[in-house]
Amino acid sequence: KKYKIKVYVKDKKTKKWKKIKEIEVDTKEEALEAIKKLPPNYEVKIVP
């Protein structure tokens, strides 16, 4: 079972969220580790 991490950042001009990358991992633990490495201003969604 794979997890997709969708990473969004808020556009300063439009104030809208835009997706900047998608990370695919195998476990939820890996997903949480990957999220920890991202800057705090990123919004993250984990999709099972």
Rank of each mutant, 00 (worst) to 15 (best):
Lys1Glu: 10
Lys1Arg: 10
Lys1Gln: 14
Lys1Thr: 12
Lys2Cys: 07
Lys2Asn: 08
Lys2Gly: 12
Lys2Trp: 06
Lys2Ser: 11
Tyr3Asn: 01
Tyr3Glu: 00
Tyr3Leu: 07
Tyr3Ala: 01
Lys4Glu: 02
Lys4Asn: 06
Lys4Pro: 00
Lys4Met: 13
Lys4Ser: 06
Lys4Val: 15
Lys4Gln: 06
Ile5Trp: 03
Ile5Arg: 00
Ile5Met: 04
Ile5Lys: 00
Ile5His: 00
Ile5Phe: 05
Ile5Glu: 00
Ile5Asn: 00
Lys6Asn: 11
Lys6Cys: 05
Lys6Leu: 15
Lys6Asp: 08
Lys6Pro: 01
Val7Thr: 01
Val7Leu: 05
Tyr8Thr: 00
Tyr8Trp: 06
Tyr8Asp: 00
Tyr8Ala: 00
Tyr8Lys: 00
Tyr8Gln: 00
Tyr8Asn: 00
Tyr8Cys: 03
Tyr8Gly: 01
Val9Gln: 09
Val9Arg: 14
Val9Tyr: 11
Val9Cys: 05
Lys10Tyr: 15
Lys10His: 09
Lys10Thr: 04
Lys10Gln: 13
Lys10Phe: 15
Asp11Leu: 05
Asp11Glu: 06
Asp11Tyr: 05
Lys12Asn: 11
Lys12Asp: 10
Lys12Gly: 10
Lys13Asn: 08
Lys13Trp: 07
Lys13Met: 09
Lys13Gln: 08
Lys13Ala: 09
Lys13Val: 13
Thr14Lys: 09
Thr14Arg: 09
Lys15Ala: 08
Lys15Thr: 04
Lys15Cys: 11
Lys15Tyr: 02
Lys16His: 06
Lys16Pro: 00
Lys16Leu: 08
Trp17Tyr: 08
Trp17Asp: 00
Trp17Val: 03
Trp17Pro: 02
Trp17Asn: 02
Lys18Thr: 12
Lys18Asn: 06
Lys18Phe: 08
Lys18Gln: 08
Lys18Tyr: 11
Lys19Asp: 01
Lys19Ala: 04
Lys19His: 04
Lys19Asn: 03
Ile20Ser: 01
Ile20Tyr: 06
Ile20Lys: 03
Ile20Val: 14
Ile20Asn: 01
Lys21Gln: 14
Lys21Trp: 13
Lys21Thr: 14
Lys21Pro: 01
Lys21Cys: 12
Glu22Ala: 02
Glu22His: 03
Glu22Asn: 02
Glu22Val: 08
Glu22Asp: 06
Ile23Ser: 02
Ile23His: 02
Ile23Pro: 00
Ile23Phe: 14
Glu24Trp: 14
Glu24Met: 13
Glu24Thr: 11
Glu24Asp: 11
Glu24Arg: 06
Glu24Leu: 13
Val25Ser: 03
Val25Phe: 14
Val25Ile: 07
Val25Met: 04
Asp26Ser: 14
Asp26Phe: 09
Thr27Trp: 02
Thr27Cys: 04
Thr27Ile: 03
Thr27Arg: 03
Thr27Asp: 05
Lys28Leu: 15
Lys28Trp: 15
Lys28Met: 14
Lys28Ala: 09
Lys28Ser: 07
Lys28Asn: 07
Lys28Ile: 14
Glu29Ile: 09
Glu29Val: 07
Glu29Cys: 11
Glu29Met: 11
Glu30Gly: 05
Glu30Pro: 00
Glu30Arg: 04
Glu30Ala: 10
Glu30Cys: 04
Glu30Thr: 03
Glu30Ser: 05
Ala31Asn: 00
Ala31Asp: 00
Ala31Ser: 03
Ala31Phe: 08
Ala31Thr: 04
Ala31Trp: 08
Ala31Val: 14
Leu32Asn: 06
Leu32Ile: 11
Leu32Asp: 09
Leu32Arg: 11
Leu32Gly: 04
Glu33Asn: 11
Glu33Phe: 02
Ala34Thr: 13
Ala34Asn: 04
Ala34His: 12
Ala34Trp: 14
Ala34Met: 15
Ile35Tyr: 02
Ile35Leu: 10
Ile35Cys: 06
Ile35Val: 10
Ile35Thr: 04
Ile35Pro: 00
Lys36Phe: 04
Lys36Gly: 10
Lys36Cys: 09
Lys36Ala: 14
Lys36Leu: 09
Lys36Arg: 14
Lys36Ile: 07
Lys37Leu: 11
Lys37Asn: 11
Lys37Met: 12
Lys37Ser: 13
Lys37Phe: 05
Leu38Gln: 03
Leu38Val: 06
Leu38Cys: 05
Leu38His: 02
Pro39Gln: 08
Pro39Ser: 13
Pro39Asn: 11
Pro40Asn: 12
Pro40Met: 09
Pro40Phe: 08
Pro40Arg: 10
Pro40Thr: 06
Asn41Leu: 10
Asn41Met: 13
Asn41Asp: 11
Asn41Trp: 13
Tyr42Ile: 07
Tyr42Val: 13
Tyr42Ala: 11
Tyr42Leu: 11
Tyr42Asp: 02
Tyr42Ser: 07
Glu43Tyr: 15
Glu43Lys: 15
Glu43Gln: 14
Val44Asp: 01
Val44Phe: 12
Val44Trp: 14
Val44Arg: 02
Lys45Trp: 14
Lys45Asn: 06
Lys45Pro: 01
Lys45Phe: 12
Lys45Arg: 15
Lys45Glu: 08
Ile46Asp: 01
Ile46Tyr: 04
Ile46Arg: 02
Ile46Gly: 03
Val47Glu: 12
Pro48Val: 15
Pro48Gly: 09
Pro48Trp: 09
Pro48Met: 13
Pro48Glu: 14
Pro48His: 13
Pro48Lys: 14
Pro48Thr: 14
Pro48Arg: 14
